[in-house]
Design a protein around this nucleic acid. Structure first.
Length: 389
DNA sequence: TCTGGGGTCCTGTGGCTC
DNA sequence: TCTGGAGCCACAGGACCC
């Protein structure tokens, strides 16, 4: 058994995107709201209001299926800019309780309130005050989990949704936690859940009790991690500082599958341009460039290339992507999705100015400036200018 | 029925060097 | 000179998360 005296909260916004839409558009309140792809499109549901969930609509469900289940629903395209603004304000609100706030995603955060108890009272009282302020200031509800580790706090938040406060302590590891399905643990998805079920392991208690040799035979090195999960152990503390991204990428699914090389090249140029804009916004350069293709069969392939030195220009990325495109089965097979991923990121701006040529750097800076003023679509790049001679 | 987009992390494999 | 093993790295793919 392990002992932790920390008090960690996991704050999870309820149906975040849909709730933001309902908060800013009163006419949507009380209606089933589905945020994701547009009607008739190829998208899936990003999130939906609890009214839509009552119709059977779920996250990650194809839009077409959601339409059949909930024809009266309001189908909205996501507005990430608006959600980002609300997210920033919520993080500020959370930081008024402790500076130990770890932003886990756009709608989730962990707070280490161990040192805040003297000022704000016990964790449950802090959780209640957070819920009250989130509702009063933003018209949104959130579920909060309390636990001695991030993992237990996260599971606890899911126990009483929406707008609830759940708590899992040390004592619950040998009690309530055992009753939960293995899929309730953060890190066990559908594939692992099915593999565990094949071993007859469906609850956390079973995962705690199974001989380690059985787990090791089935999962190899992954067995240890599964065992840690089963006992609610997560060694990682709450880390307030947000690390730099490890990769930036862009991908798009075509409205209609294509095997036209020109269409693919044009899509790649646009994606590379957007990914590179992200790169420059962070002041980063990338040394690894990856091409991702999903064929009409849904089979996905990736091809990656490491550059001789870090780069941060669309031209360098696009030329590399064209090379990678030659390595895969295009022109013959139909493609539904194409993506670009830039990795192995570093701060290497000085090196770039020497190595990549001042013209491309200056061009990139000028493009960023115009787009900052008039929007991203104000300027497009011409493939002919960027392709190798 | 028909499966998004943006990420992180892990594992297996194969090439290379010592 | 040849060979096997260890260690490292790049790469591909997959699982998972929101």
């Amino acid at each position: 058994m392990f002992v932790s005296h920390r008090a960690i909260l996991h704050v999870d916004m309820d149906a975040f995107f849909a709730s933001v839409e309902q908060a800013r558009r009163p006419e949507l309140r009380g209606l089933p709201v589905i945020v994701g792809g547009s009607r008739g499109g190829r998208g899936v549901v990003a999130t939906c209001s609890y009214e839509a969930r009552a119709c059977g609509v779920r996250t990650a469900m194809p839009i077409g299926q959601a339409e059949r289940l909930c024809p009266q629903g309001a189908f909205l395209a996501p507005d990430f800019t608006a959600y980002g603004v609300v997210h920033d304000r919520l993080v500020d609100l959370l930081r008024s309780f402790t500076d130990q706030v770890e932003v886990a995603s756009i709608d989730e955060a962990y707070l280490d309130v161990t040192g805040s108890r003297r000022l704000f009272g016990p964790p449950r009282a802090i959780a209640r005050r957070i819920q009250e302020r989130v509702y009063a200031e933003h018209g949104l509800t959130c579920s909060i989990g309390i636990g001695p580790t991030k993992l237990l706090a996260k599971v606890a938040a899911s126990l009483d949704k929406p707008a609830g406060i759940g708590e899992l302590g040390e004592a619950d590891v040998g009690g309530r936690l055992r009753e939960l399905p293995v899929g309730a643990l953060h890190g066990i998805g559908p594939v692992t859940e099915e593999r565990l079920a094949a071993l007859g392991l469906t609850t956390v208690g079973m995962l705690q009790d199974v001989p380690f040799a059985v787990l090791a035979a089935a999962f190899g090195r992954g067995a240890y991690g599964l065992r840690q999960l089963a006992f609610g152990r997560s060694l990682a503390p709450v880390t307030a500082r947000r690390p730099l991204p490890k990769s930036v990428g862009r991908e798009t699914t075509f409205a209609v599958d294509t095997n036209d090389l020109e269409v693919l090249r044009a899509a790649l140029l646009g994606l590379a341009d957007r990914a590179v804009a992200d790169l420059r916004r962070h002041g980063l350069a990338a040394r690894s460039v990856a091409l991702k293709l999903r064929y009409s069969t849904f089979h996905t392939v990736t091809r990656r290339r490491t550059l001789s030195r870090p780069a941060a220009t669309t031209a360098a990325m696009y030329r590399t992507l064209l090379g990678l495109l030659d390595e895969v089965d295009v022109g013959v097979r139909w493609v539904r999705l194409v993506g670009v991923d830039l990795g192995d990121l570093s701060h290497d701006a000085f090196q770039l100015t020497l190595d990549e040529g001042w013209r491309e750097i200056a061009l990139g800076a000028a493009v960023d400036q115009v787009r900052g003023k008039y929007g991203f679509k104000a300027l497009g790049l011409a493939a002919a200018q960027l392709a190798p001679p």
